[in-house]
Design a protein around this nucleic acid. Structure first.
Lengths: 190, 190
DNA sequence: GTCACTTGCCTAAAGCCTTTAGGTGAATGT
DNA sequence: ACATTCACCTAAAGGCTTTAGGCAAGTGAC
């Protein structure tokens, strides 16, 4: 008699992502998700291996969404223009979807990580460096530095790390991008 | 008859920090801690308000330890020397005490945050900028940038974000510090 | 159309974690 | 001795996870 709820791994993942944005990634629980579908908890386990599997799927979804946005942003841009566009993708995504952004930070096992959209991210960061004059291995160092700054800034800002102090964070962000651009144009020799 | 275990908030916090380093901060649970003291779980609740309180105390401990190390590291140093010393404190601490480092990232409520050693960290970062020629508001921007890089790099490295690729992370770290030093000496005008 | 099969959700149950309430025995002080 | 306090205990309730087994609605074969 019960009408079917129409559960699928995909719908669970999507709903889990929404839930993450609403209540925070680490409050995403099988129970909460079941409640949202008005279904008993055990029913989820036909579609998702376990709680960890669910979290991983959400992380992978977030990585893909981010990579999609990023690849659209850098298309047709170069130099500082591309740098800013990519950086803003991360920041904006984290603001719009804090739960998903947190999910994207989930530690994946090497297998899964290699198959994830994470590699697209690395490729795109490398791509924007084409506008600057960096040979290997400095290019790799720069990729890592950019990744660190983007991720570090976004998480600190998201966590309220800059919240109390004076110059507003938008200005710092702009100046940070100026600084990174200057640094890349003027990368110090080893 | 039972011999007393000698529980105190301090001992619980310290043991919790050790546990965090062993099994990861988010596996630090009141139950696990009670097991470690060979005591019933409920007994902890006389010394610690709840699970959240315990985690917060561990976070505060980690922040203090980090600030102590940092202040010792920057004492008597200036310029790039100070910059490297401070940066290495964060990286080394994260490597030695991954659980504590994660704990230090815990979002604290404004009250607690203001009373924490977090403010010492901000002051120290600002202190090493005395070796460079930066006026406000650029100094604040630079403080935030350095915080972002340190935190971002350390978490990415800790999470295995750089693990697979070619130049080893030590070299990237060295070159990152070179790059930051160059940037601070040559901060772009607004 | 009916029979077997699959699919999707259910109930039941066990295990672990958190938290509160109330109790007991050992140490402390008068 | 006696009352008090302190440190830890037992008991119990509630939440989340996960597995096992059941039933009913759709699907395909004859």
């Amino acid at each position: 008699m019960m009408a079917r709820a129409g559960l699928t791994p995909e719908r669970l993942t999507r709903a889990g992502a929404e839930l993450a944005d609403e209540v925070g990634f680490d409050h995403v629980t099988a129970s909460a998700l079941a409640r949202r579908f008005d279904v008993k908890v055990a029913s989820l386990y036909s579609h998702v291996r376990n709680s960890e599997d669910l979290r991983t799927r959400i992380a992978l979804l977030a990585l893909e969404e981010l990579a999609d946005r990023a690849s659209e942003a850098v298309a047709g841009r170069a130099g500082k223009d591309a740098l800013s566009a990519l950086a803003n993708v991360y920041r904006d995504y984290a603001r719009e979807h804090p739960g998903r952004y947190t999910a994207a930070q989930l530690r994946l096992d090497p297998q899964t990580a290699a198959a994830s959209a994470g590699v697209r991210h690395a490729r795109m960061t490398r791509a924007i460096l084409r506008g600057y004059d960096l040979a290997e291995p400095d290019q790799t160092h720069a990729v890592r530095l950019l990744g660190s700054v983007f991720h570090g800034y976004v998480t600190l800002e998201m966590g309220g790390g800059f919240s109390h102090s004076a110059p507003d964070t938008q200005e710092t962000w702009t100046r940070t991008l100026d600084a990174l651009d200057a640094l890349l144009r003027n990368w110090p020799a080893a």
